[in-house]
Design a protein around this nucleic acid. Structure first.
Lengths: 99, 99
DNA sequence: TTTTGACTTGTCAATATTTGTCTAATTTAA
DNA sequence: TTAAATTAGACAAATATTGACAAGTCAAAA
């Protein structure tokens, strides 16, 4: 489930129109349409706006949004598994960093 | 081990000067210095050039390079583990995609 | 069939970011 | 101290991103 598909699903469940949500976000309907279809990438600020408009937790939406971006970076790499393993290691190091 | 630290180590092992490697890459010494110190991000093209100049496999260098970028995206996220798990799922889906 | 409303697409100027180089430090090694 | 290597800062040029507008498609209502 991509970010776009996810927010579209949420919007439809709430029976909201593109124009209603877009208006709450202060953006053009066309732009929100593109974000939902994945032809445009939302800015972080817009993800926050969406969380408000759709009454979902910001971190939940950000999870989908960040995952999307990372998947996009990795989708053409042959050794994405190896890369992810390394990322996990490095993150672990970071969080164990004292001070 | 970050990308910058890694290529610096490789360069020093080979006893090459910044200016020698930078010249092979057709970039300014100052830029390579910044890349090694992590204050500038190499372009993918430059990673390829580095692989040649340092006689290392491109995919090995790209692994460090991509991991760096992803770590940077995640370093301020509280739920990075969750995000990575989602990424792994999505990647798995992608590779299982028939046609 | 025409009209209407919701959504989508293509294009473009404005804005923002990235890039690489230059010059001027600073550090290092002799 | 000197000379070479490396680093920092500032800048213009190149590139990328952004959001809006206008025009398009599509389905359902009239």
């Amino acid at each position: 489930m991509t970010f776009g598909n996810y927010i579209r699903k949420l919007r439809e469940e709430k029976q909201l129109l593109l124009r209603e949500v877009a208006s709450q976000m202060n953006i053009d309907t066309a732009l929100l349409s593109k974000i939902e279809r994945g032809t445009r990438i939302a800015r972080k600020e817009q993800v926050e706006d969406l969380a408000k408009a759709l009454n979902k937790s910001e971190s939940e939406l950000l999870k989908f949004w960040m995952a999307d971006k990372i998947v996009n970076m990795l989708k053409d790499e042959s050794n994405s598994t190896e890369i992810l393993k390394k990322v996990e290691e490095e993150i672990k190091n970071l969080t164990n960093q004292k001070k």
